[in-house]
Simulated scan of single mutants.
Amino acid sequence: MPSHNFPIRRVAEDPAHRLDRRRWPGVLAPVAQVLDHGLDLTSATIFVGENGSGKSTLVEAIALAYGLSPEGGSTGARHSTRSSESVLADHLQLVRNAGATRRGYFLRAETMHGFFTYLETNPSTSGPDISFHDLSHGESFLELAVDRFRGRGLWVLDEPESALSFAGCLSLLAVLKDLLAEGSSQVIMSTHSPVLAALPGAQILEVGAWGLRQRTWSDLDLISNWRSFLDSPERYLRHL
């Protein structure tokens, strides 16, 4: 697939707005690594790591620096309930590919309920929207992805598996795979899901106390842990 038409090729610290490394989130090793050395992106980049490792902080900051709404939506969305995002976006510089689209969308499972209400009260000029509140959490999340993720753009997802079953993860994977096949779209995602981490052609970055390290799917701690549990769940359950 083409590698020069997707929106962002690199994330770096804005030299005019440096972040104090003694201040959160600069104290997080993955954040400090991006600020100190920059991060080259591909058409698909997936962040995998434990809770609190910094993966969602990075994904959220990239989305905000691109101009996307912190609680979900496109560059035109203005939905906001309680601000909880870090200041990292204010200190990032995105290096965009020349001629690439500026379209994009941010989906995060934890803010979907409020975001659906925002969509209901701010209908599109093209007509009535999908009745998201009438669907299950997983169904509504997939419907939104299918409806909004179209054509060229930057598609950012923060732990989407929170809303999805195994089959739902496979359905979302199919949506993302088809978008990337078009050649001008880019996916940035944080996830705990071994299914979503298997997105074909994605650069996988394992996030932790070491910072960021590029891994293959089969070498991820996430995969080895799931395999070990599924092979012998009783070994884990007796220690709970």
Rank of each mutant, 00 (worst) to 15 (best):
V156E: 03
M189G: 02
F149M: 09
G151K: 10
D178L: 11
A174K: 12
V207H: 03
E139G: 09
L205P: 05
P200A: 02
S131W: 04
L172H: 06
E139W: 00
Q203G: 04
L170K: 13
M189Q: 03
P160C: 08
G138C: 08
L135K: 11
S162D: 14
Q186R: 08
S165L: 08
S171I: 05
A197Q: 04
S131T: 07
I204T: 03
G138S: 10
L173Q: 06
S171H: 07
A163Y: 09
E143T: 14
H192W: 14
E139N: 13
K177Q: 14
V195D: 00
F132K: 03
E161I: 07
L179G: 00
T191E: 06
D129N: 15
G201D: 14
L180A: 00
I188C: 02
V156A: 02
S162Q: 15
S124C: 11
L170E: 15
L144T: 10
G168Q: 08
D134T: 12
Q203Y: 07
G211C: 13
E139L: 12
G138F: 00
G151N: 07
A181D: 11
A167Q: 07
T125M: 13
R152A: 15
S165Y: 06
L180K: 04
V187D: 03
S131F: 08
L173F: 01
G211A: 08
D147R: 11
S165A: 11
L154N: 03
L170W: 12
L164W: 00
S131L: 13
L142E: 05
F132D: 03
A145E: 03
T125P: 13
V187I: 14
L205K: 01
S131A: 15
L199H: 04
E206L: 09
V207E: 02
V146K: 05
V175M: 00
F166L: 13
G153T: 06
D178H: 10
S131P: 15
T121K: 09
A197Y: 02
L144S: 03
S184Q: 15
T121L: 14
L157A: 09
T191R: 00
S124Y: 06
S185M: 06
E139R: 14
P123S: 07
S124V: 10
S162R: 11
S185D: 09
T191H: 00
L196Y: 07
S131E: 15
L135Y: 08
S124D: 14
L154R: 02
A145H: 01
S193G: 13
W155S: 00
E159H: 05
G201E: 09
D134Q: 12
D129V: 12
D178V: 12
S124G: 13
A174W: 04
E206K: 05
K177I: 00
D134K: 10
F149V: 05
G168D: 01
A209V: 11
S136C: 09
S126K: 13
E139T: 15
T191F: 01
